[in-house]
Amino acid sequence: MNEFPQALTIAGSDSGGGAGMQADIKTIQERHVFATNVVVAITAQNTLGVQASLPLPLSLINQQFASLATDFKIRACKTGMLADAEHVATVAENLRHYDWGPLTLDPVMIAKGGAQLLADDAIDTLRTELLPLATVLIPNLPETEVLTSSRIKTTADFKQAAHQLQQMGAKNIIIKGGHLDYQSQAADYVLYADGQDEWLTTPRIATKRTHGTGDTFSACLTAELAKGTPLKAAIHISKAFIQAAIANPITVGHGHGPTNHWAYQEVHHD
């Protein structure tokens, strides 16, 4: 009873279905884990961009957390779009209250189309309230530069930034290198809590169908952790999952199209 692996995404809704909570739920389902959700904000969004967004009342966010706690056995959770300082603080308060396993923190700040998804005043709150709770922190390069107040150009910069983020309280760091456009390989740097590190590299794919890549990667990792997969193996599965999702595109929309959330299953048959 209630022992089936269950995970939680705490994020914004993407009406276009390619990123945000919708990408999370699709990905978690593909990994054979039951997905629950706390909606923090609603967006009017498609592959061309974010046209509008509205954070939900804090009381309703608290009620969503309480509702899940009375019925589900959540084993891992992740965060996505958290809107502003008040909402970041509210989410952090709830995560301290409920023990729902490892937290994967995806510090969503800017959408693919350039829309700002996290208010400037929320960055300090995210650093002080949420970062220390994170089992895994997964920023992309622009987010890493904001969080560390530094520029990242070299492999040494990656390593220095990861150590800096670890000092802020996050246990394991994955800095996604997809924004380094001049490289033929997409390279992510991983710094583990015990000080070990590694680079995850895959061939770069020339495509506009990358909407929701960060959400998908972090959701896959969350699902694996909910199943009890060891962290290193979970990270490697997540890297393969997003690579398959980008390499086997589906054609919808007229802008930055979504990734293919079922591609990994077809390629790997698991």
Rank of each mutant, 00 (worst) to 15 (best):
I152G: 02
M168E: 01
P102F: 09
I152N: 06
N2Q: 14
W262N: 15
V136D: 01
K227L: 07
R151V: 13
L191Y: 00
F4C: 11
T202N: 13
R151T: 15
T9S: 10
R209M: 12
V146G: 04
S67V: 06
Q6A: 14
A111W: 08
H87V: 09
L118A: 05
Y264S: 10
F4P: 00
P102V: 09
G178C: 11
L133F: 05
I250C: 02
T9M: 05
V33L: 04
A35Y: 05
A41S: 12
V88C: 10
H261Q: 10
I173D: 09
A223E: 05
I10Y: 05
H32Q: 14
Q164A: 09
L147H: 13
D197R: 10
Q116L: 15
A223V: 09
L82A: 08
G178K: 07
T154D: 10
W100F: 07
A134V: 00
S149L: 13
D121E: 14
T251C: 12
A226L: 14
Y98P: 00
V50C: 07
A11Y: 05
D188Y: 06
G255W: 00
Q45H: 05
E3R: 15
T210P: 02
L58C: 03
T43L: 12
L180W: 03
Q22I: 12
E145Q: 12
V50K: 02
M168S: 12
D14A: 02
F34Y: 11
A119W: 04
M1A: 10
Q64V: 02
Q265F: 13
L54Q: 15
A66S: 14
G195P: 00
L56C: 06
I246D: 02
A85I: 04
F217L: 15
A76R: 11
L60D: 10
T154M: 14
A161P: 02
E3H: 13
R96P: 06
L60P: 05
R75C: 10
L103Q: 10
A35H: 13
Q183N: 02
A122V: 01
